[in-house]
Amino acid sequence: MQSKFLDLNGHQFFVRSWGDPSLPPLLMLHGFPEYGGAWGDLAPHLSQRFHCVAPDQRGYGQSWAPEGVQNYVTSALVGDMVALIEQFGDPVTVIGHDWGAAVAYGLAMFKPALVDRLIIANGVHPVPFQREMAAGGAQSEASQYINMLRSPEAAEVMSANDFAGLETFFRRHLGQDWLDEATLAKYKAEWARPGRLNAMLNWYRASPLRVAAPGQPITDLAPLPLDRLQVRCPHLLIWGPDDKALLPQSTEGLEEFADELTRVTIPETDHWLIHQNPQAVAQAILDWIPQTGTPS
C-alpha cells in the first residue's frame, strides 16, 4: 500500500493505493464510520488487475474536513471525486460501500463520461431507498438510527468513553463482531482527529432523504427527477444478505434505473461483507469485469 496527499479543488485529500499505477484504475469509496484504509482487506485481492485508489473522503481521516452541514451535500462530495478521477485522465471503474455508494451512484448518474463501470457493495440507489424509508415499514424501522446520528449531540454521545457508543454501533447495530483490537485502535485514531466525527455525521445531516416513523408513512415526498437518476454503464450490486441496516427491499426496482444490472449475493455476510469475505467479493468483481488484453 502506498499513500500520499492530493490537491482536489484546492483542498488536501489523503489517498491510499494498491497495485501498479499503469493498471486500470479502480476508485474505492468508503462509508460511515470508516476511512480509506477500510479497503485494505479487499484491495490486495484486486491489485493484480487494478490500480486500487482509496481516498479518505471529505470529512474523514486525514482529508479536508470543513465545518458546516452545507459542505456535505451530495454535489460537493461528488465534486471531490470528479477532481480525483480527472487526474487519471480516463474513465474509471468505481466501487462504493455504504455512504460511499451514494457518491458512486452520484458519479455514475451525473458524470457518466467519467465512469466505465459501477460496483456497489451493500449500498442503495436513492429512489428505492427513499421509497422504503418513507413507507413506515421494516426499512423505516431499521433506519431510525439515522435520526439519532443527525442529532446535534450525536458526536458527543458517540465519542464519550473512548468512542464506546460508536464502537457499539459499528460492532452490533450494522454487523457481526469482526473487529479485532488492533483494527479498532486504527479506527479510533481516525475518529479522534479534531472535528472529524462531527464532519462524518454531517453526511447524514446534509442528506435530503427522509425517514418515516414506524407505521407512519410519509405521504408528501417531493418528486425526484427520475430521468436524471439513471445508471447507464454496466452495474454490479454485491449484497450481504444478513444486513440489518439496509434491507433487501431497498434494492427492489433497481433494474428500472440500471439497464445493465448484475446482482451477486455473498452468503453468510452482512453490511460489512468487504471485511467478512473479501475473497468472495473480489471474485465476484473479477468474474464480472471482462479480461482485457488477452489473445482472442
Rank of each mutant, 00 (worst) to 15 (best):
P66C: 10
E181S: 15
D7G: 01
W64D: 10
K111G: 08
W99T: 05
L237C: 08
M28N: 05
V53I: 15
L23E: 14
H125D: 15
P55Q: 03
S159L: 02
N71S: 07
L84R: 02
L107Q: 15
I95Q: 08
P55D: 06
A222F: 01
A38G: 06
E260M: 09
G136R: 10
R58C: 06
M81L: 09
I120P: 14
R172M: 14
N9L: 10
A189I: 12
K244V: 00
E255G: 09
D220G: 03
E153G: 00
G137M: 14
D220T: 00
Y35K: 06
R205A: 11
G68F: 03
D227H: 04
A134N: 09
D180Y: 03
A108K: 00
D227R: 03
R16L: 14
P214S: 14
E181Q: 11
G106Y: 05
Y105I: 04
W178K: 15
G37N: 06
P66H: 01
S207G: 12
A185N: 09
L237V: 08
P55K: 13
Q279S: 02
T74K: 05
P128K: 03
S17N: 05
P55V: 06
S17V: 02
W239Y: 15
E252N: 15
P241E: 04
Q279R: 07
D162G: 05
V115E: 12
T219H: 13
L221W: 06
N9V: 06
D220R: 01
E167P: 12
M1A: 12
P225D: 06
D56V: 05
P21W: 13
M1E: 13
Q176A: 04
R210I: 07
A101E: 07
P290H: 01
Q48W: 12
